[in-house]
Amino acid sequence: MRKHRFFIILTCILSFSLLFSTINVDQANASTTKVIKQGMNSGYVYDLQHRLQQTGTYKEAITGYFGPVTKNAVVKFQKRYGLTPDGIVGPNTWRALYKHTFTANEIEMLAKLVHGEARGETFEGKVAVAAVVLNRVDSKKFPNTVKSVIFEPYAFTAVADGQYYTKPNKVAYQAVYNAIQGWDPSYGALFYFNPKTATSKWIWSRPQIKQIDNHIFTL
């Protein structure tokens, strides 16, 4: 059942990535002023369903129609984040969604990074790499968007050596979704390195949290 749900999610990501790739920052901010509720059918509902899927509250296909299933998912999300559980998506619910979820483009970037950086690691190691990116987005020490974190100069080896541009597999997407839904095997790490190849004295000086496979995760 879990595999079936994941493949539904993955299919939706691939099917609607072109649509969501057109959503820029101004459009995202504009959507937070849009109120949508049951019975509506629009691009905002596509975005809503896509983001609810990431939280695990919506597990059906993305249709763009705000029906009872979507409303129930909204209520679950609102309860989880301490919002009024009315099933209506207004400014407060939009802001919470944008804080805790990502566009299809951002998920694609995360999956490509996971695939490039942790292709030979266990699933836990892949999730940990995705979690490090999300931890950086949340940290005041780093840029506050997925794209700017991933493409910060010299931040990730896979970007520098071109492995980032290889096509991610399904496991990479699944690892990203697990990280988005709150699993952080790195326990809040902001960095990681391979102890067999790392020569930087600085990275060795960072407070170490744990080792997963070939990576040591640090603060």
Rank of each mutant, 00 (worst) to 15 (best):
K126C: 07
K126D: 02
K126H: 05
A130H: 01
A130V: 04
A131K: 05
A131V: 11
A131I: 12
V132D: 01
R136Y: 05
V137C: 02
V137T: 02
D138M: 13
D138L: 14
S139V: 04
K140M: 06
K141P: 04
F142H: 11
P143N: 08
N144P: 02
N144M: 07
T145E: 14
K147L: 12
S148G: 01
V149L: 06
I150P: 04
F151K: 11
F151R: 11
E152G: 00
E152D: 08
P153R: 08
P153I: 13
P153H: 10
A155P: 06
F156D: 01
F156Y: 15
F156L: 05
T157F: 05
A160D: 14
A160K: 13
D161M: 05
G162W: 11
G162D: 12
Q163V: 06
Y165G: 06
K167C: 07
K167W: 09
P168K: 01
K170N: 09
V171Q: 13
V171W: 02
V171N: 07
Y173S: 08
Y173Q: 10
Y173M: 13
A175K: 00
V176M: 09
N178S: 15
Q181D: 09
Q181G: 08
Q181R: 15
W183A: 15
D184K: 04
D184Q: 08
G188K: 10
G188T: 10
A189H: 07
A189N: 10
L190I: 12
N194V: 09
N194Y: 06
N194P: 09
N194K: 06
N194A: 09
